[in-house]
Nucleic acid binder design. Structure first.
Lengths: 224, 224
DNA sequence: GCTCGTATGATTGTCAACAATCCGCGGCGC
DNA sequence: GCGCCGCGGATTGTTGACAATCATACGAGC
C-alpha cells in the first residue's frame, strides 16, 4: 500500500513556525535590511509570547539573517557588495557539489524534476516576483536532488540571502530571457552529465547574478 | 596609532556562551549521540535559567547537532554511515571552494598560517585527542584563510560534526603518520597553487577519513 | 559655545510558575 | 491470554512579570 504523505504528522514547534514566517518576511523584503525587530511588537502581532519568538530569532541569527546586538536589539542584516559576492561564491560551491553528487546518482529523476522547475520558470517569465520564486525553486530542487541533507541546508540558507539581495533591486528586474537561457544551460549540463561544463555554467550563472545586482554601481545596498 | 584588538568589546549573549559550551561538550563526546538533554538539569548545572538555555538549544538544532522531538525533549543527533559520508562530502565541497578562493587571494599569508597549524599537528602526533584538535584547527585555518564568512560558518559546523564522528572511535585512533602526510600534501598543493591537485588531495583525504571511520564495519555508530 | 554628568525612556535579558502534552504502567473487559 | 482504557509521572511548551543594560535628551559647569 501507498502511505505517501501520511507519516509526517509531526507538528512543528511554534518557534519553528515563527522562524519560517519571519524568514519569509525577510526574504520578501517586508523587513528591509537594517530594520530593527522589536520583540514585543512582533510577539503581539504574531500572537505568540516572547519566549518562542526569541527562540525563532536565535534560529535566524544562527542562519546569519539577523544580527544580534546585546541590549540593543535584533536587526535585519544588510548585505554589502562583499556579502553579495560571498553569497554567490558559496552558492557556486554548494550547487557544484550537489550537481556532482546528482550526476553520480539518479540523474534521470533529477532531470525530470528540474525540467518541471524550468517549465515553471518559463511560465512565470512575465511576473518578476513569480520568476524569482521559480528561480529559487529550481536551485532548491537542484540541491535537493543531490540527496545531501547538509548541502541542502546550506543551500536553503544561501537562497534566502539571495532573495534578500534581489529584493533590493525589485524595481529593475533582470531580463527574464537571459535568466532562462542560463538555467536551460544548467539543466542541459546535468542531462549530459558533463561535470566540467556544469561547473563552468554554474560559475558563469553566479557571476552574472552578481553583476546584475552590483551593476547599478554603488546604489542600493552597497555600504562599506 | 595602533588600535589592534581594541575595538571588539562586544559581550556575547549568554545564550551564545551556553551554545559554545554545549557544542564543545557534544563535540568532545561528553554527551554521546542519542543522549537526551534535560532542560532543568542542564540549566541548573550551567547556572542559567531555562530561557537562555532553550535559545542555545535552538541554535544547536539549527546547526543540526541536536534533534528536537516535540514534547519529548532534545537529543544529541547520532550519525549513521550515510551521515558520515555526507559530512565529508560537504566538507570536501566547502574546503575545496575555500582553497580556490585562498589561492586566488593572499596565498603567501595562508601558507604561513597553515604551516604553523601543520607544525602544531606534528607536535601533537603522540596524543590522539590533541592531534584531533590540531587537525580541526588546520582545516579551520584553511577555510578562514579564504576570507569567506559563509564558507567559514559552514565549515565550522561541519567540523563539529566531524569531531562527533571521531569521538566514536577514540579507542582506536588513526595512524598519525598517514594523517600528517595527507595534510602535508594539502599544504603543498596550496603552496604551489595547483587547483587540480588540491581538489584531488582533498577528496582523497576525505575519502580516507570516511574509510577510517567506517572501516570497523557496522560497529560503533552505524545504526540505520 | 562646548563638554561632561545625569535623568529618562525603551529595550533586551532573565527568571519562576502555569498549562499542555506525551510515555509507561496497572487494571479491566473480552 | 490478549487488547483496550485510564492514570501517574515527567518533560516540554508557554506565559507574564521583574531586573539589568544601554541610547538618547536635557541641563549644569567651564
Amino acid at each position: 500500500m501507498d502511505l505517501t504523505g501520511l507519516e509526517p504528522v509531526e507538528r512543528r514547534s511554534t518557534a519553528a513556525i515563527v522562524a519560517d514566517r519571519l524568514r519569509e518576511a525577510i526574504m520578501r523584503g517586508t523587513f528591509p535590511p537594517g530594520t530593527q525587530l522589536g520583540e514585543v511588537e512582533l510577539a503581539t502581532r504574531l500572537g505568540v509570547s516572547r519566549g518562542p519568538l526569541r527562540e525563532a530569532m536565535q534560529w535566524l541569527v544562527a542562519e546569519g539573517l539577523l544580527r544580534s546586538v546585546r541590549n540593543r536589539g535584533l536587526f535585519v542584516r544588510d548585505l554589502d557588495a562583499a556579502d553579495v559576492r560571498d553569497v554567490y561564491a558559496a552558492r557556486a560551491a554548494v550547487e557544484r557539489a550537489a550537481g556532482l553528487l546528482l550526476i553520480a546518482g539518479d540523474r534521470a529523476a533529477a532531470v525530470v524534476r528540474l525540467s518541471a522547475s524550468l517549465a515553471a520558470m518559463e511560465a512565470a517569465a512575465g511576473d518578476p516576483v513569480a520568476l524569482a520564486d521559480a528561480d529559487h525553486a529550481f536551485h532548491h530542487e537542484l540541491v535537493a536532488a543531490s540527496g545531501s541533507p547538509r548541502l541542502q541546508r546550506m543551500a536553503d540558507t544561501l537562497l534566502v540571502e539571495t532573495r534578500m539581495c534581489l529584493a533590493a533591486l525589485q524595481d529593475n528586474p533582470p531580463p527574464a530571457e537571459d535568466l532562462l537561457a542560463e538555467h536551460r544551460a544548467l539543466l542541459d549540463a546535468v542531462r549530459t552529465g558533463d561535470v566540467a561544463r556544469l561547473t563552468t555554467v554554474l560559475e558563469a550563472h553566479m557571476a552574472d547574478a552578481v553583476d546584475r545586482i552590483l551593476a547599478p554601481a554603488g546604489e542600493s545596498a552597497v555600504s562599506a
